[in-house]
Amino acid sequence: MNSIRVVEIEEMNLRGAYVIDGFPSIGLVGSIVANYLVTALNLRQIAVVDSVHFPTVSMIKNGIPSSPVRIHAGEVNQEGDRMVVFVSEFQPPPHILKELGVTVMNWVEDHRCRLLISPEGIGTKQAGPSPDVPEAEPEEREEEKEAASNSVLGVASTPEAREMLKKNDIAIFEGGVIVGLSGILLNEGVNRHFDVITLLSEASPDFPDARAAAAVTAAINKLILDGSLDIKPLLQEAELIEKGLKEMYDKAGKQDELRKVTVPGMYG
């Protein structure tokens, strides 16, 4: 019997939707990216992921309680494209990661989504030399330049997804080890021939790194949103986001959990 289940709150047609994995890793990059996308794109909650292994907490925002792992979705442009975002501020325990990854992929395939992107922080020593970045056009926005200063690498599960990275000038992560949920999702993508992309940005192992998250968000903006998302607020509010996440962990008594999430050396 599975110990993880998805509880549907609102029915929505998600055929062809883009999916973002918002579970945390180094620098809480995934959590910050997910929360920003939900807010910026005005996505609404459609489901929760529930398990006896998840933290026994209720996330309170604007007086409304919610589960530790939520699924938000909605249309992101006038063409009717949809995005799904898994949002979590807590790192699932290692022994359930495989089951969680399979549950996520089963749900994504059941709803006929088209692509899953997993944002990840990566330690500086593991990032390797910075890839060559084409010179920016004069009209490029200043916030995009700042976000691009944090180099982003990508790894994909299928030839089609790798070609997508190349077409958008995102350098390929050529060698190393990706552990945790992102690694499981990549492997599941290979096994199912489903497009899964992990985006890696250099992040601090010591605190929530909103600037690394902004770099990944800029890459997502380029890959699937045609540059329509405004990244500037995330850059401007980086310090506030970092402070808010730290306070959340303090209030929940999860100081040790934060250190577990941001330990260095997850990639090699």
Rank of each mutant, 00 (worst) to 15 (best):
I9E: 15
E10M: 08
A17T: 06
D21C: 11
F23P: 02
F23W: 11
I26F: 06
G30C: 02
G30P: 02
V33M: 05
N35S: 06
V38D: 08
A40E: 12
A40D: 01
A40G: 02
Q45H: 05
A47V: 03
H53A: 14
F54N: 04
T56K: 10
S58L: 15
S58N: 07
M59V: 11
I60E: 01
R70M: 15
V76M: 10
G80Y: 10
M83D: 03
F90A: 11
H95A: 13
I96S: 02
T103P: 03
V104K: 06
L116F: 00
P119I: 00
G128H: 00
E137L: 14
E139C: 11
E142K: 10
E144L: 13
K145P: 03
A148I: 10
A148R: 12
N150A: 12
V155T: 08
T158G: 15
E163W: 00
K166Y: 07
N168T: 00
D169H: 08
I172P: 03
F173T: 01
G175W: 02
V177W: 04
G183L: 01
G183A: 04
L185Y: 00
L185Q: 06
E188F: 04
E188M: 06
N191G: 13
F194M: 01
D195A: 14
V196H: 05
L199F: 08
S201L: 00
E202S: 05
S204V: 00
P205D: 06
F207C: 00
A210K: 06
A214Y: 05
L223K: 09
S228V: 09
K232H: 10
P233N: 12
Q236D: 13
K243W: 04
E247P: 12
A252M: 08
G253L: 03
L258H: 07
V261T: 15
T262Y: 02
M266D: 08
